[in-house]
Design a protein around this nucleic acid. Structure first.
Lengths: 212, 212
DNA sequence: GCGCGAATGTCAGCAATCCTCACATTTCAC
DNA sequence: GTGAAATGTGAGGATTGCTGACATTCGCGC
């Protein structure tokens, strides 16, 4: 993932520090800003190159096409999302309801903090399905949820019920994030206190409803 | 299908059948197909015009810019979504758990049936926030959910708890839809039976968790 | 019928974009 | 040092969004 170290140490990071200094990372950063400011489609390779101070052809020495740059942004963003979710879980006792809600809260916070990037990460358009590294990072994030749920229920990670409830939490949080940043039903979402909402959700998910 | 395509531009509605025949509607249909096939960003006005058999400048006699065409597609799609949700609710007894789940199922079906359009409707990029008609249609769809939940709980529509639980169902269904069509966690979502899932969710939402 | 204005279409063209090519320059490995 | 690879530049083709000027057709009052 991040070979964004612009150190002159040879052998560790053979690339990304030649002429310009670390164009690759700088392009990704520029694109991230552009996406955040103008939305996922308000981005252009030319503008990113302009911001990095290079010609409009330079990016193509580092990325095959525009989609690959976006994939770079997504990859970096998912690392941050994963870190945020893990940190949130670690802030509460293992197996506590709060830990479960906190994981969701981290997710929502990310979406609210950088809605443009969030939309890019999860509203992918093309070329992303075949990226196994992104899939893996998504599964890692899901793993954090699974872990929190499994701890609450005191069941193994692979348990089918754990997986199912973890997925419930994820869809919930995912939907809430999108509805919020897309400002659908603005009246409703505006008056929602996230933490209270997430605690309620977590409780509802953990409760064992009567199966027919 | 002489649909009275809702026009944000006043004074244009009753026409749309001069030279070409019904270019406006045909353009919207072409764009819908393009969006569905190539994704929300794989669409171009030129291609739509080409498919409609007109010059690349003709669309601009009917739409101010490309975003307005997309808005037309979104508007038409939301009408269909609304109709589907209402029909689903009407297929079960008022106040039944099944009616509630069916509304969610209609939502998920729409997302699965035309994922590209669904992404366009809810993953809006620009110029949509200011469209009051689209906002209103979104609220109408939410209203169907509210109605189903209110009937289940036997409470008035405006009840705060009803609104809250309806929003829960919506976030759930919304998140599930997106996770499915984006093929995140493909393993997990692939093995989920929607109806069973939605019934479980509905039950969990209706259950009154112990408030702290 | 007829003529006029508005609605609807075409064509040409500008600016921006994505991406490729040929070429220049810098760095690394030896 | 030297050669190869990596990294940059500039020019340019193809496509696109959108805007003019112009041509055509429709609806409507006479």
């Amino acid at each position: 993932m991040a070979d964004d170290i612009n150190s002159p140490v040879p052998g560790v990071t053979p690339k990304a520090a030649y002429h310009h200094g670390d164009l690759r990372a700088q392009l990704v950063a520029a694109v991230r800003d552009l996406v955040e400011t103008y939305g996922p489609d308000g981005f252009s390779v030319s503008e990113a190159a302009r911001r990095a101070g290079v010609s409009s052809a330079a990016p193509y020495k580092h990325f095959r096409d525009r989609h690959e740059i976006l994939r770079g942004v997504v990859s970096e963003a998912m690392d941050r999302l994963f870190a945020g979710m893990e940190a949130a879980a670690a802030a509460y006792p293992v197996g506590s309801l709060e830990a479960m809600a906190a994981v969701g809260q981290a997710y929502v916070d990310f979406a609210k903090g950088e809605p443009g990037v969030f939309r890019l990460v999860f509203g992918l358009t093309e070329g992303h399905e075949n990226a196994p590294d992104l899939l893996a990072k998504g599964e890692s994030c899901f793993g954090v949820v699974v872990q929190a749920v499994a701890a609450c229920l005191d069941l193994p990670l692979g348990d089918r019920d754990v997986q199912r409830r973890a997925y419930m939490l994820w869809s919930f949080v995912h939907g809430h994030s999108f509805l919020h940043i897309d400002m659908k039903t603005r009246v409703t979402t505006a008056e929602i206190d996230d933490w209270d909402y997430l605690m309620t959700i977590s409780r509802a998910i953990l409760a064992r409803p009567a199966r027919p």
